[in-house]
Simulated scan of single mutants.
Amino acid sequence: MNLGLNGKVALVLASSRGLGQAMAVSLAREGVKVAVTGRNPEGLKKSVELIEAAGGTALALSWDLSDPSVIDGLVSKIEKELGPIDILVNNTGGPPPTLAAGQDPALWQKSFNDMILSLISITDRVLPGMRQRKWGRIITSTTSGAIAPIKNLAISNTLRAALLGWSKTLAAEVAVNVIMPGRVVTDRLRQLDEARAQRENISYDSVVQASLKQIPAGRYGDPQEYGDTAAFLASQNASYITGSVIRVDGGQIQAI
């Protein structure tokens, strides 16, 4: 299937590893020129290698989402070296696991700045150009905890739910969709499973087996499956899809 994306330019935030990296590579396979961002030089290097191996063009940017002062300069660099941004993939790393009660307000504030305000600010920077060219896609990557809260991930559950509200509201103005993973194999998922095993004093394999029982597909997802879904949402073929939440979860999420 030709997704009609050849020659487009994408900015994929937090794409030096995990799901961000997978989305960047899937877009590159469709001929998209991709700006990848992150704070880990080795991870960025790996993302560039994967994109180039897929026949794509990549620009690696060291980007700390907690610093709003760098937004204009980095977006301008992308526009100069790759071209105007057609596709924005809003993605961030996850906050530390926490209970809901008793958290330091400073942690809530930092997480809000990193995970919400940064994405809104970057979106506002690229939207005028999309509107001027009458073509653009915004994809927000969130988590299943936004609609089915996950135990011990209070900050993530709360702030990702805020992203849903913002994205749905923005979708009345421009083309925006949300993509939501279930249990897709990444370093982050393994860390969370290991933390649960330690917290509950059970084996890592026991955690995995308990999770698999809750997934109708009977397995964890492959990051490429998530990335390919994002590429489809960015495509011409998905031009009549907006304001939707697309779950890539093997049937795990029970909410309607």
Rank of each mutant, 00 (worst) to 15 (best):
R188A: 15
Q236D: 13
R199P: 00
I253F: 02
A22V: 00
R125H: 04
G83Y: 11
E173K: 15
S66R: 12
L159K: 09
V174T: 15
G129Q: 13
A35H: 05
G102K: 05
G94M: 12
R17W: 11
L153I: 01
R137L: 04
I246M: 05
G250H: 05
A53M: 05
T143N: 11
A255R: 03
V208Y: 03
L212E: 04
D193H: 10
A28D: 01
S47L: 04
K45E: 13
V25Q: 06
I150P: 02
V32D: 03
I147F: 02
D104F: 12
G7H: 07
Y204H: 13
Q191D: 14
V89Q: 13
E79T: 12
P97S: 06
G129I: 03
I202F: 09
V178C: 01
D249L: 01
A172I: 05
M130I: 00
M1C: 05
I155C: 00
R137Q: 13
N2Y: 08
G243P: 01
A22T: 08
A35W: 05
G221S: 06
Y220W: 13
S141P: 02
K110S: 06
I85C: 00
D72P: 00
T98V: 00
S47K: 02
Q198S: 08
G227S: 15
P149F: 11
V176E: 12
T142D: 09
A35K: 01
Q236S: 14
S244C: 09
V70N: 03
P128R: 07
G43A: 04
R17Y: 04
S244T: 05
A54N: 12
S206C: 11
S66I: 04
D104C: 03
V12I: 11
L19Y: 08
I85A: 04
N90K: 11
R29Y: 09
L59R: 13
A60S: 15
Q224I: 02
S239G: 01
D104N: 15
G165E: 09
T92D: 07
A210R: 15
L50I: 03
S76H: 14
I122E: 05
I202K: 15
Q103I: 07
D249Y: 07
V245M: 07
L59I: 07
D104Q: 02
V178S: 07
E194S: 14
F112A: 12
P223R: 14
L99R: 13
N201C: 06
Q109G: 00
T142R: 11
V89K: 12
